[in-house]
């Protein structure tokens, strides 16, 4: 298991929260009401463990947004919520809703945009930390169980992922989701080295 020190964890969390703040400001302006975003927790886990975190509680479906990233890190960035929470988020943010049980095509597109704003903010803070370029693709809507989404059984279940808890504050509700960044091990080591450099320079 890959461990980071408390100081490293605090530093990453702080940086991510700053970028979450600006993503929240963008979202708030778009929907004309207060949206809160926070990253209360950062851990590094094997894919398998991350998938089980979703599936242990219930094998209910998750849904969310994914973007692929390339450059300094290669892989995928995912923003996941329990399926019914995705519905709640989109419908609170859009206000005008279609009372059907699943997201309509246009609501999925809106969710993609919300995910895009959050994932771009996170990817850009990681790029800043690495002082390298990360190119991110367009967002896609996905849904499935944790194991399906994390492509368990594809032979990569031991790969490490950066697993962030994301708190979404809307109206009087607080909805928890997760952001996962798939990182390869060399870029992970590099990430930690950069982190230490910046912490030491403080």
């Amino acid at each position: 298991m890959f461990e980071i020190t408390d100081i490293q964890r605090d530093y990453i969390t702080e940086i991510l929260n700053i970028s979450m703040g600006s993503a929240a400001a963008v979202l708030s302006e778009m929907v004309g009401e207060e949206v809160g975003l926070s990253v209360p927790e950062v851990v590094f886990l094997p894919r398998r463990v991350a998938a089980d975190k979703f599936d242990l509680n219930n094998s209910a479906k998750m849904s969310g947004v994914t973007q692929s990233v390339s450059g300094a890190i290669n892989g995928d960035a995912l923003l996941m919520f329990p399926e019914e929470k995705t519905l709640t988020i989109v419908r609170i943010l859009l206000g005008d809703t279609v009372p059907v049980e699943s997201l309509t095509e246009m609501e999925q597109e809106a969710m993609c945009e919300i995910g895009n704003i959050i994932l771009n903010a996170i990817v850009s803070s990681v790029a800043n930390l690495l002082q390298k370029e990360i190119v991110s693709s367009l967002p896609h809507f996905i849904s499935g169980t944790g194991r399906e989404i994390y492509a368990i059984n594809a032979g990569c279940e031991d790969d490490l992922v950066m697993f962030l808890k994301v708190g979404f504050g809307l109206e009087s509700q607080s909805i928890n989701g997760h952001v996962t960044l798939m990182l390869n091990v060399p870029s992970l080591r590099e990430f930690i080295a950069h982190l230490d450099e910046q912490i030491n320079a403080l």
């Binding site: 973007q67 246009m106 597109e109 809106a110 945009e113 771009n120 850009s124 991110s136 367009l138």
Partner: peptide, 17 residues
Amino acid sequence: ETALDKRAASLLSRSLN
């Protein structure tokens, strides 16, 4: 600006814009 400066792709949905 973000696409040119940070190489990030964005989607602007009709529902939110």
